[in-house]
Design a protein around this nucleic acid. Structure first.
Lengths: 146, 146
DNA sequence: TTGAATTAGTTGCATAACTAACTATATGCC
DNA sequence: GGCATATAGTTAGTTATGCAACTAATTCAA
């Protein structure tokens, strides 16, 4: 049986779940405690729309690293909450453009604040240089694996 | 509206999904291509049992960063595949100890090989020092967030 | 210009995640 | 001993994920 494996691969078990879900769960909890009924997955979509409204589902999938089926259903749920609406593109009738509604506007500041605070807590004691290395490694791991 | 937020927090969108799921999905695909019918979530449980057989569900939850409800159903599914069995502890009748079956044994070498290969590809061009920093940062992010 | 291939989105099916409420066993304090 | 509390695991309900098969619209090429 292979010995000595996962010397490097131990990273896998670290990557898979731990830090990533700990931060996500904490943010989710902070949303809930603040009376915000959205999930972090939904928020991750809204986050990109606040940066640039009217993206296609395709583009939202690219930016949030989800496949099109996941985006379809995530948008379904955000739409049910009344926070976005689909508007068919006039240029290409296959495309749905996703627009924020007025109801979504007030959420931005509140959720940014909570996300910012959560990230600051998560990154406490971690230097800018370390963060840069992590981002850089992740980018390369992603490119190596996709 | 807050400007200049997420300078550090940009890490969030990177943490959440990208590298982690890219590697996981790649490994899942490699399992499937090799004719292995297990999911990476199931594998992550088996991985810990191969290191130490007969762990309680509680302990498996700790080691794989899952809550007890998730472990219950994950074990349900692995049990359905005939790869593990629950045996009630004699010391504490609340506790289920999870043991690998003979059917699980042949999977170990094959999956280790695939996981190792997948991780090596994912980590191509990334130095030991960088990996150490990432693991260390993750540990601290986890401690800061749990 | 028409038929083949591609692309955007949806739907069905299976797995997995979290919370909350529940059962059963164990512990601990009086 | 007996009741309150804590702990291990299960179950119900909701959300999310991925793959594969599908529809509708668009593009490309003979």
């Amino acid at each position: 049986m292979p010995n000595n494996q996962f010397k490097r691969g131990e990273l896998y078990s670290v990557i898979n779940g731990m830090a990533t879900t700990a931060v996500a769960r904490r943010l989710q909890k902070n949303f809930r405690n603040a009376g915000l009924e959205i999930t972090i997955e939904q928020w991750s979509v809204l986050y990109h729309l606040w940066k640039e409204d009217g993206l296609s589902q395709q583009e939202l999938g690219n930016r949030t690293f989800r496949d099109k089926a996941s985006i379809t259903r995530l948008i379904d749920n955000i739409e049910k909450l009344g926070l976005v609406e689909r508007i068919a593109s006039k240029e290409d009738r296959r495309v749905n453009l996703v627009y924020l509604t007025d109801a979504a506007k007030p959420l931005q500041e509140k959720t940014y604040e909570l996300a910012n605070q959560t990230m600051n807590e998560a990154l406490q004691g971690i230097s800018k240089e370390e963060i840069e290395i992590v981002k850089n490694v992740f980018q390369r791991v992603y490119e190596n694996s996709k």
